[in-house]
Computed example of a mutant assay.
Amino acid sequence: MHNLTMSRHNGSELHILCSSGHLFLQPLWDRLRTWEALIQSPFFPVVFSITTYVGFCLPFVVLDIICPWVPALRRYKIHPDFSPSVRQLLPCLGLTLYHHVVFIFPMTLLHWVASRAPLPPEAPELLQVARHVVFCLLLFDAEFFVWHVLHHKVPWLYRSFHKMHHQNSSSFALATQYVSVWELFSLGFFDMVNVLLLRCHPLTVLIFHVVNIWLSVEDHSGYDFPWSTHRLVPFGWYGGVAHHDMHHSQFNCNFAPYFTHWDRILGTLQSAHAK
């Protein structure tokens, strides 16, 4: 009887926690739904993607500009003597804008024509959002790892599609999306399939895209701060900016974009700290 009472008590606590998570996100979701016409338009994914990406890149661009005159900042820069020039920054930004206008917008338009479901009235539970975002990141990490290894091990794939991303050996934020059209669509396909497989709520999809864009920009930023993501994740499970920089400099290691378990399992993990 005592165990039954405790079980009911624990179940009630879990229900309250989930309900609290739901109530926590509902005001935000209600506010977003007032802009449903904008969110449901074919222009929104393109504008959202560009503004999020450029917004995350701009602080690092500013840091690169002031870094030569701020010695204290150089201690956090992986390559202290490197700063991207205007001739490197502008082509990267131009290619990102070109890809979004010429390729991403038409695909978004096709998707908009094919499926225009109304936004759900209820927000997702907070725990569900966290769980789905983590699962999406883990799935993307595994998919990109396989894609990445193939495009390094097969010379034709590397020359034809992935070499473009490695033209900047010392990475910087705006070089994150300096990729071929094939790579652009491959990564976009992984994103789309994962949120569909998990049946993510539209709010979860937005949060996942923001997190994914931030992590990719941070990995290419060239700055290793005390608050960088890899320092916040325990046991070395997350690689981080120095980890990914090792891939750009050595080519044959650290193929996973974020986490370290696949490289560790398959023997391609190279510790940035050992370097």
Rank of each mutant, 00 (worst) to 15 (best):
G55W: 10
G55D: 07
C57F: 00
C57D: 01
F60E: 00
V61D: 10
V61N: 04
C67Y: 00
P68S: 12
V70A: 10
A72C: 09
R74P: 00
R75C: 11
R75P: 04
R75E: 09
Y76A: 01
H79G: 00
H79L: 00
D81K: 03
F82H: 14
F82N: 04
F82K: 09
S83V: 13
P84H: 02
P84V: 02
R87C: 07
P91L: 05
P91V: 08
C92Y: 07
G94N: 08
L95Y: 02
T96A: 15
Y98D: 08
H99A: 06
V101Y: 03
V101K: 05
F105M: 10
F105D: 07
P106K: 12
M107W: 06
T108R: 13
L110W: 10
H111G: 05
W112Q: 07
W112M: 05
W112C: 07
A114H: 07
S115E: 09
R116V: 00
A117M: 10
P118S: 00
L119A: 08
P120L: 02
E122G: 07
E122V: 02
A123D: 08
A123V: 03
V129A: 01
V129K: 01
R131D: 02
R131S: 06
H132N: 10
V133C: 01
V134I: 15
F135H: 14
L137M: 15
L137H: 15
L138R: 01
L138M: 13
F140L: 03
A142M: 14
E143F: 03
E143A: 15
F145W: 14
K153D: 15
K153T: 13
V154K: 11
W156K: 13
L157C: 12
L157H: 14
R159F: 04
R159N: 09
S160P: 06
F161L: 12
H162A: 04
M164W: 12
Q167M: 13
Q167Y: 13
N168P: 01
N168D: 06
S169C: 01
S170Y: 09
